[in-house]
Amino acid sequence: MSTTAPGHGDDHQEPSETVVSSVAAHKGVDEVALPPLYEALDPDALDALFTTAGGRVRFDYAGCTVEYASDGGVDVRDA
């Protein structure tokens, strides 16, 4: 099963926040039920990466494979 969130035009949400909300939606749980994102990767580094660079990053988080794109799009798949 896969959940894809379109790119966000709202610059107020950091990439790390978008990832957590997308994974929570995919799993059908509240965001606080997920493990901390920092157990998978450094959220500050993710946010900083996409303020200066484009591209995509793929990583595993909370039993899912997550791909975040510089346009804010997120693809979440069961691992």
Rank of each mutant, 00 (worst) to 15 (best):
A33H: 15
A53C: 12
T52M: 11
V29F: 15
H26K: 02
D60N: 05
A62M: 11
V20Q: 03
R58T: 12
S21T: 14
T65D: 04
S22W: 09
L41E: 03
V32M: 09
T18R: 13
G55T: 08
A69N: 05
T65E: 06
V57Y: 12
L46M: 12
D47W: 10
Y68D: 00
V66G: 01
A45K: 13
Y68I: 01
D30A: 15
S70C: 05
G28M: 09
A62C: 10
D71M: 01
T51C: 06
D71C: 03
T65P: 03
A45G: 11
T18P: 13
T52H: 11
E39V: 01
L34V: 09
V29L: 15
G54H: 09
G54L: 06
C64S: 10
D30M: 12
V20C: 06
S70Q: 02
Y68K: 04
L41R: 08
R58K: 06
A40T: 01
L34P: 14
A48L: 11
S70H: 07
A40C: 04
V19E: 01
G54M: 10
S70D: 12
F50Y: 04
R58F: 08
V32Q: 13
T52Q: 12
D30R: 15
E39M: 01
G72L: 05
S22I: 08
F50N: 01
C64P: 11
E67I: 03
D60W: 06
L34E: 14
L34G: 14
T18H: 09
R56L: 08
V74P: 10
E17R: 08
A53R: 14
L34R: 14
T52V: 09
T18E: 13
L37D: 03
V66F: 04
V20D: 04
R56P: 03
D71A: 02
D44G: 05
D44C: 01
P36W: 00
G63E: 08
C64H: 07
L37Q: 00
C64Q: 05
V19T: 02
V74T: 04
A24N: 13
K27I: 07
V74E: 00
V23W: 06
A24W: 10
V23G: 03
G28C: 07
A53L: 14
V57I: 10
H26I: 09
Y38F: 05
P35V: 04
L46R: 10
S22A: 15
L46D: 06
P35N: 01
A48Y: 10
V20H: 00
A62Y: 13
L34S: 12
E67W: 04
L49G: 15
P43N: 08
L34I: 12
Y38R: 09
D71R: 05
G73I: 04
G55S: 09
T52G: 09
A53Y: 15
L46Q: 08
A33T: 15
V19Y: 01
E31C: 12
E39H: 03
S22Q: 10
V66H: 02
G63Q: 09
Y61T: 00
V23Y: 09
V20W: 01
V19P: 05
V20L: 04
E67L: 02
T51A: 08
V23T: 04
C64E: 07
P36A: 08
A25Q: 12
R58L: 08
A53N: 13
T51K: 10
C64Y: 04
L49Q: 15
V32S: 14
T18L: 09
D42K: 07
V74F: 00
L46A: 08
T65H: 02
G72S: 04
F59C: 00
K27L: 15
A33V: 14
K27F: 07
G54Q: 06
